[in-house]
């Protein structure tokens, strides 16, 4: 199952935090910063999986590699879109390549909702972020992977606010999240 879904930007500022277990705020912050250090030190062209951050590695999953399934979070998947990092922490019951795709689905859904989404949209509409995620994952289990259905369900909850006009894009965040979809594992 999925243990946490995080979004933060290139400076490590969180944009969305969702933990599927109850965790102290301070520990959440530590985990985020540990993952940020890991993710920001990735050389170009490395894979989309992170080694376990110290906080999670404390209980040692490397030793129990022979034990195929367990409840311990053992996989940290990330994807980088423009200025943002999307992180999923999960157990071994999830398929690693499918998780990469799940992030893609999430970003695609946001892109549809905001029309050419950029970091500013996420900053000012974090309630919509939560709503979108809530239509994809409930309690750590994926319930929907179809972008159309996700978008429809979010829209059913109310109108999605548009980007504040006067804010502009002066934040220097670049246009869009670069939804190139450079690779898609599923033959969707």
């Amino acid at each position: 199952m999925i243990n946490a879904f995080l979004v933060f930007n290139g400076q490590g500022q969180p944009r969305l935090t969702k933990f599927y277990t109850q965790l102290d705020t301070s520990i959440q912050q530590r985990l985020i910063s540990e993952i940020f250090t890991l993710v920001s030190n990735r050389p170009r062209g490395s894979c989309n999986f992170l080694p376990l951050p110290p906080l999670l590695a404390a209980s040692g999953t490397s030793q129990s590699a022979s034990e195929p399934h367990n409840d311990v979070p053992s996989l940290v998947t990330y994807r980088n879109y423009a200025t943002l990092y999307f992180i999923i922490i999960s157990t071994s019951t999830e398929s690693p390549l499918a998780l990469i795709d799940l992030i893609q689905v999430y970003v695609e859904a946001l892109d549809r909702l905001f029309e050419n989404v950029c970091e500013l949209d996420l900053i000012f509409n974090f309630e919509t972020l939560h709503a979108t995620l809530g239509e994809m994952i409930v309690g750590g289990v994926v319930i929907e992977t179809n972008t159309d259905k996700i978008v429809a369900a979010v829209k059913a909850q109310g109108t999605v606010a548009k980007r504040p006009v006067n804010e502009g894009r002066s934040g220097g965040l670049g246009a869009g999240l670069g939804m190139g979809g450079n690779f898609v594992w599923h033959g969707r």
């Binding site: 199952m1 243990n3 946490a4 933990f19 599927y20 277990t21 965790l23 520990i27 985990l31 906080l55 999670l56 404390a58 209980s59 040692g60 030793q63 409840d71 311990v72 979070p73 922490i89 750590g140």
Partner: peptide, 21 residues
């Protein structure tokens, strides 16, 4: 080392872990 690890694991669940035992 690994022994203490496993013992510690018993004592304290991993962070984020949802116990389904």
């Amino acid at each position: 080392d690994s022994f203490t690890k496993s013992r510690a694991k018993k004592l304290k669940q991993s962070l984020l872990q949802v116990d389904s035992s």
